[in-house]
Design a protein around this nucleic acid. Structure first.
Lengths: 212, 212
DNA sequence: TGTACATCAGTGAACGCGCGTTCACTGATGTAC
DNA sequence: TGTACATCAGTGAACGCGCGTTCACTGATGTAC
């Protein structure tokens, strides 16, 4: 072979990693094969030595992005006291930083709507990663039955990714910030309220009379 | 002119209306100009007598879809007692029927993520329609200060459209239904809990020990 | 009222372009002897 | 250890195709006289 034993695997991984950023930035159909290969320092002709089709790369790149998110949050949780794990994930998710850097952020707000329209195979691959992420999130909600934790994880993820999509549509101004704040408070409030002793109002998120 | 006075306006409206369905079904880039004109019973060459560009049609079709949703919900609310208006919207939104017919459903889960990546002009046009929809939703949340209602409307819409996107990614099976249910319960629960006398658990949505 | 002309929504061929994919070729390296 | 050959990741030209857009043309109708 032209290159050393692990060279191909490294190149493959580099293509996938770079593609996962570009696809989150520009959408599942927003970047061409030639550009994706250029990102990895290659020419487009060699693409099919690594992937059966463009769609196959899309699937791998999504899986990579989802795995990275799930793993990052799991590690973040490990370094946080159990009762603050979930809140720390939500708070780092619904930020202007995340909103303004989709390429390095969660793949769900960036790509899920498009994926839902792809082939069943692609869609199912994404759904499996979604399921993993939900389970990981449920692990971070202590002191409630597992079924409740899972429901909370699903609803929270929906609220988080939904707020992120809306915030990106709204741009970077006041309206966009308002969406991030409303989403963050609602998710944190709901989950803390579901705990046995957690019905007291959270800081800045009174249930009846807002101070702000 | 070849056609009677109002003929052009009618044709224009027909193109926009049909396009709003096709674009929600297949995405903002998922249908070509030729197909969109064919839907209206025309050939592609005449397109530019009606629109400056394909993107101009996309903007009009989105505005049309958003206006229809906002108006439909407003009317639905008028025929419902004030304290049940919001719940009736949420319940009709997070259904398998809506999930399985994106072409006639809410434009936000279908298209918002793509719109966020379009030109500032297109994005802002969508953001303005989003703002209108949020205001309409806030109108349906009684008995709380306006600021609270608006926050609830934003967070609820994020949860609703997010759950719809996730449910569509999950397909039509059990997992997908679980997402719709979790989203519905979370949104209804959160809003009813924000009311002065509304802290009691909702039917089937116990806060600590689920029955199902 | 009747007639000639101007209008312009709609037609269908054509344009240029970018895309995903294919393919003959290259050449540095691993392997066989 | 040294040499000839086989391998195959990567190159770059080419392919076919569909897309958004342009354009010369059509012909039924509104309008001017």
């Amino acid at each position: 072979m032209r290159y050393s034993r692990e060279h191909k695997a490294e190149t493959h991984a580099r293509i996938v990693k770079n593609a996962s950023v570009r696809l989150r930035e520009h959408g599942a159909h927003g970047v061409g094969v030639a550009d994706l290969m250029k990102d990895a320092g290659l020419t487009h002709g060699g693409f099919y030595a690594h992937f059966d089709s463009r769609e196959a790369l899309v699937v791998e790149a999504f899986a990579y992005a989802m795995d990275r998110s799930t793993e990052r949050w799991r590690k973040k949780a490990e370094q946080t006291p159990p009762d603050k794990r979930f809140a720390s994930i939500v708070e780092s998710y619904l930020t202007p930083l995340h909103r303004d850097d989709p390429g390095h952020g969660c793949a769900i707000p960036a790509l899920a709507a498009e994926i839902a329209r792809e082939s069943p195979k692609t869609r199912k691959a994404f759904a499996a990663k979604l399921e993993e992420m939900i389970e990981m999130l449920a692990d971070q909600i202590p002191d409630v039955p597992r079924k409740t934790a899972r429901k909370q994880a699903i609803a929270s993820l929906a609220g988080m990714m939904g707020a992120m999509v809306l915030a990106r549509v709204a741009g970077t101004g006041e309206f966009s910030g308002e969406i991030l704040t409303a989403g963050r408070e609602a998710v944190l409030d709901r989950v803390s309220a579901s705990k046995p002793g957690g019905k007291k109002a959270r800081k800045g998120v009174p249930k009846q009379a807002p101070t702000a």
